[in-house]
Design a binder for these strands. Structure first.
Lengths: 353, 353
DNA sequence: ATTAATTCCGTGTACGTTCACGGTATTTGG
DNA sequence: CCAAATACCGTGAACGTACACGGAATTAAT
């Protein structure tokens, strides 16, 4: 089996058609000024010879430059976003030789005004494409209108917004990941297990992920008729300095038989911290995302399972999808769900973080 | 945060150094014929300005062509190898514009002579680099000697060969993956569990993977003092048409309390087939690799866990490592372990196959 | 001092594109 | 029927790099 480099140049098809390379170039780019017969003939030969342009020569000669903009939460506020960001930077690095620049605009994910400001700023730079995390529904829909008016293609990352015509979406199926979590717990916990669901979040912004993950989690258990586990659900304010300790203390007091904990976001390390300090490490603890903080607790056997979603890949492919669409005119997949990685102490070293 | 395209050209550093681009080119390529002071000065400026060559211009102008060869088992014999192959083809596709061709040479993984023939054929094509799967130890070491004599860099895929100076290795830590399997089973099975280890292989060729995975599996259980599971290990000849049914029948007869099965390779579907036909689907069954055959059984709840290793990535990155080293003169990581993916019915749809 | 050898360096062409510019034919208008 | 407009097409200069060739400056040999 051989895969060899394609050698057919514009010059070759020009010669075969008995025209100049300028003419071929014109039909290849629909620039007009070509007689329709000549045009057809050239297109025919192009197809016959299987011409594929040399992308390097193309980008060398091209005077076009592209600007991409990325709007994501500030990684100083939420360490999770360091990971998508690093993937974005990797993509930026790869495509910068294709006359394409990438600008990252961080916003405060707990402050809608910050998101709005950020977007206005972005639109002022008149980018050719936008990757963004649509945490704020209404604001996002407003900006989608603006982008569509200006014909700027956009890609969602992490969160999906239904009923909108994005170029692509990169993220996890949140609900299904909740089902995965449920399956794991249901298989390990005893018949009469008691599970605590801990939602650590900002009071003002309960993310879709949190909601959907919990939904999938509970849905799965309800479908299993053999398993009659009990649930307790807790919403804890991230900004309260007494938390999550206070709420957890109360929860364990009132539910002393809890043997499983499900934390539907990356803040699981805060719960793990409590478990460790109170010698409750035998409780089966499951959370999300490979933050450094979580990794430490996995290695200490405090957290038992982490569900990962390859945030670097999401960032990387989000940018690349935009680039492929805009610069290379390739078709890109709209729906791109990340794997729901099941990570434990024994395989954590083989996931990059 | 901005990542903009680097704009420093050879011309720029030539002007700053007060020399011509030819001179800069000479020092950049160590072609000599440059006064040492000039050389130093240019190198200094190159570093100062952070010059990075434009790879596209480079590959456009370069008359060099590279030939890479890949030796892997025939995917007609073992369907697993379709997956690395598809990754290899993807890589070949990406680098063909860099004047690099990739040739795939399939051999029969159960026949050492086939491997040897294949290698001789490969060496005759005088490739610039080789990716291969070193299943046959002695034969591989012989060919490594030949490659080293000819200064041909080589990359291992899937299997690792210690004590040899490969450019890179892409594969899974087999032993550790066995430990992952053990952890999962140990967590789910009851205290007094009874596990059957089924090694489906060709009598002549017991792969390292099979051995190492079992080793890690047993090692893990031995380390847990709380778990006193019992084991039975079975070696079954793949080519025998009565198998694995006959051996499994006997095994279940003599060990009626078996509640877990570990199949340390991709042939787990053959065991699953037996389990399904004999209504033993309640047994916890764990195997390797996302073959179509296995996927079907995961969806039917016959196989419970599959350990994946991203074979497409292994193939892709194996070729890319060689390319980066040879064509782009980049440094590549030697040791590249694939993630040990834990796959169940609930997350299987999000792993590409 | 003249020639020859040697060291060092600049020039020019090529790689496959893009794209502006301008040049022939052909057609249109009066 | 001639000028002007139009339709169609070729030419040539870039893009950043590689590399062959040959030229100038320096040194060595006679």
């Amino acid at each position: 089996m051989t895969t060899k480099s394609s050698k057919i140049r514009i010059k070759d098809i020009a010669e075969k058609a008995g025209v100049s390379i300028g003419t071929v170039d014109r039909v290849l780019h629909n620039r007009g000024d070509v007689r329709s017969e000549t045009r057809e003939k050239i297109l025919q030969i192009v197809k016959e010879m299987g011409y594929t342009p040399n992308l390097f020569a193309k980008s060398l000669a091209s005077k076009k430059t592209y600007r991409l903009a990325v709007l994501i939460p500030d990684s100083n506020d939420n360490p999770y976003w360091k990971h998508p960001k690093s993937g974005i930077i990797k993509a930026a690095d790869e495509i910068k030789s294709f006359n394409t620049s990438v600008n990252i605009f961080p916003f405060n994910a707990t402050d809608e005004a910050s998101f709005r400001n950020c977007f206005i700023q972005v639109l002022r730079t008149e980018p050719n494409g936008i990757v963004f995390n649509p945490v704020f529904r209404e604001a996002s829909f407003e900006f989608i209108e603006l982008m569509e008016a200006k014909n700027i293609p956009f890609v969602y990352i992490d969160t999906f917004l239904e009923k909108s015509n994005c170029l692509a979406y990169f993220g996890q199926n949140a609900k299904q990941s909740g089902r995965v979590a449920a399956k794991i717990l249901s298989q390990i916990l005893p018949e009469n297990g008691e599970v605590l669901i801990v939602k650590l979040a900002n009071r003002k912004v309960i993310s879709h992920h949190l909601k959907n993950r919990e939904e999938g989690f509970i849905e799965f258990f309800n479908e299993q008729n053999k398993c009659n586990c009990k649930f307790t659900s807790l919403i804890i304010d991230l900004l309260d300095s007494n938390e999550p300790n206070q709420s957890l203390y109360t929860a364990f007091k009132t539910h002393p038989n809890i043997n499983g904990i499900f934390v539907p976001n990356s803040r699981v390390f805060k719960v793990a911290n409590y478990l460790k300090e109170n010698n409750k490490t035998d409780i089966l603890c499951l959370g999300y995302d490979l933050l450094h903080e979580n990794i430490d607790f996995i290695e200490e056997n405090v957290i038992d399972y982490i569900i990962g979603q390859r945030p670097e890949d999401q960032g990387y492919h989000g940018v690349m999808a935009l680039f492929n669409h805009i610069a290379l005119k390739k078709v890109v997949n709209k729906s791109n769900y990340s794997p729901i990685d099941i990570i434990i102490k024994e395989n954590i070293n083989y996931y990059n973080y």
